[in-house]
Design a protein around this nucleic acid. Structure first.
Lengths: 236, 236
DNA sequence: CACATAAGTAGACGATTGTCCACATGGGTG
DNA sequence: CACCCATGTGGACAATCGTCTACTTATGTG
């Protein structure tokens, strides 16, 4: 897990130091306070290092935060993309809803597994996730921008996958991008609930799935409305 | 604005102190860092008071934060409820979409004005809003719970208003509550964008409106799917 | 082996912090 | 008037903070 050199010059015995500092900072920031307000001595103490060792790896806490975002964000993105390519999802769903507005089982399965992917990662990296969300709304513009870009990257991934996996009639490119971004943002709330209310995990999963279905179904209805009145009623 | 005694014992010359401390804390927390990480001396200095005067009003920063949430949250909630009762919205919309899935103009106007209400408040109280969102995801469980309850109260208000103002066929109570909460949560992102990207304000308004319409339209489609296959129009 | 370099340690500096105690003041009530 | 009490002030305390300079240790390369 932590054997990645991460930097060209980082070789030799000190590999643990950088990672220990990141881990300590995430641990402290997720339970105690925000990243920027952490004490340099506090973190190094928690990591079992001398205060000065911090300077060997990072310039300041924004620097540490960016490194953490880069590392964990990349890991999550890679993990998601890999798990999404699983054989069970290789067939392309024919549409989100059938002619009676019922949810296509294949599409439902895809939505369910995607929600599961995100929530599983959150469950496996709670401290990193909590700190990330905290910094998304935090006081450091640098960190806000970094986390925001990461979320946008997730949204772009998701939009691409949706386009590849299901065929939703009347779903334009911009609409898909917009919906993906809104879904990713809403997932930050669902994920936080998921961590804070372990007893409601199934309910939260279901709510997230309903949310996603609603978004796509709503977009389809809106797209229908823009076409000439061919659709629902028996417009002659 | 700040003449409310706020506490029974608070009379006489010291009225300014408590309010000055809250204002200073919001100002500092919105531009510098999180509430809990503020320095007691930092805040009192910014408020123009001696460090010790902090203890005259608050036990700690959670105490100050709760007071701020209570004050501004109540103000916002009252303001929203009052502005929603305006005559232009007194007539009840007959439905969200017409028989061709086109958005009802009256419903559209209601959505537009509701979005405007929230964004206008955010624009008028940026520091309070930013700190609120920051604490919603912050490290103090006390503050998180307080802001969360405030958001839930907003959602309940909104659900009640929607039920009173528009008649959406097939929209159950639980679904309406759920949608309202998701809308309120999504609005936190829209509001932050609204503050941070003044050049995109119109676009953000439009996106928020699209989001809301999508949610309701999607819920209608899902409700249709659960009914026997009588399908959309063609009723009696 | 010698050497450069990255990683970690030790100690000290002034600055800032939270908190406490003693004191000043000014309006309300007896 | 005398009194109380809420509010605000000032000084002092130990503790912690970030940062600096100087020193040690381990590793990979030639």
């Amino acid at each position: 897990m932590k054997q990645v050199p991460q930097r060209p010059g980082t070789i030799g015995r000190g590999i643990g130091g950088r990672q220990k500092l990141i881990d300590a900072a995430l641990e402290l920031a997720s339970t105690t306070r925000s990243l920027a307000s952490l004490g340099l001595r506090e973190v190094t103490r928690c990591a079992g290092l001398a205060p000065n060792s911090f300077y060997r790896h990072f310039k300041d806490f924004d620097d540490l935060g960016l490194a953490a975002v880069e590392m964990l964000g990349g890991e999550l993105r890679r993990g998601l993309r890999e798990r999404r390519r699983r054989p069970s999802q290789s067939r392309k769903a024919t549409g989100l809803l059938d002619s009676s507005n019922r949810l296509n089982p294949a599409a439902r399965e895809m939505i369910r597994s995607t929600v599961g992917l995100v929530l599983d990662f959150v469950d496996e990296h709670p401290t990193a996730y909590i700190v990330g969300i905290r910094e998304l709304h935090g006081s450091s513009p640098t960190m806000r921008k970094a986390v925001n870009h990461l979320l946008d990257a997730f949204a772009a991934d998701m939009a691409e996958d949706v386009r590849a996996l299901v065929d939703i009639p009347g779903l334009g490119t911009e609409a898909l991008n917009e919906i993906s971004r809104q879904m990713i943002r809403q997932m930050t709330f669902f994920s936080m609930d998921y961590l804070e209310q372990p007893g409601r995990r199934d309910a939260i999963r279901d709510e997230a799935e309903r949310f996603i279905v609603r978004m796509f179904a709503g977009e389809m209805a809106m797209a229908e409305a823009k076409k000439p009145a061919r659709k629902v009623a028996k417009r002659g």
